[in-house]
Amino acid sequence: MAPPRDLFHKRRPIFTCSRPAAPFPPPGEGPSWGRMSGPESSIVQFANVGLRYGTDREVLSDVSFTLYPGSFYFLTGASGAGKTSLLKLLYLAQRPSRGIISMFGEDVITAERRALPEFRRRIGVVFQDFRLVPHLSAYDNVALPLRISGMSEGKLEKPVTDMLEWVGLSHRVDARPETLSGGEQQRVAIARAVIARPEILVADEPTGNVDPEMAVKLLRLFEALNRLGTTVVVATHDVHLLRKVPDSLIMRLDKGRLSDPTGALRYPPRREQRAEA
């Protein structure tokens, strides 16, 4: 069952660009790309990005890619390959050591610090370690992004309740995170990430702690959000998951270097090869 459209509360205009109905046009329709006039229609651009923690070796090297609005990406790679590090750059928790990152058409590296919260509100994040606020109930955790954006209590009650129902936690709304199982915590984390209908959703191993059935259900949630225009990036090493989202594109990290097995990250993307991924 697909989640209802109005599950995602906010109806503000998503990052605008002349996007085809499907994330990408079918092969052979090359000329139609003329409408998406190159990188400026992208929502995220990395150019020669490198990241090192302290004085260690680089954990990410020469990472360059472009994400297009409304697309669904999987980020795969072995443990320690740098997936979380790359996502941290994406959700503005980390500055790169070198390279250029632009999001929503703006250079976020030179952006003023006080401009960043506004960017962050347009990005939903499912942290690998959930990061639920320990003394807040499931309800309050999910409501957090809406409260941060200043929504009134009366307005946020219904979307939060609906979202908790969708992730199967109606009976646990008042539970604190410590009393929730790993999978339940993960679902709260996901509900919190998608509730404000972000323009970019970044999820780090979002299905690591749930059973396969729930994993598929949560993927449906991401897909529904994706259909509303959100660009989704899901880091996972569960290869089975990749097949569950037919229109997805794959980014692969190998020891901090990005490979592009499907050509999805190039411009224009080579979509016809993704079946072999």
Partner: peptide, 9 residues
């Protein structure tokens, strides 16, 4: 940190 990452000013 969490509130900060969720866009809290």
């Amino acid at each position: 940190e969490t509130i900060h990452h969720l866009g809290g000013t």
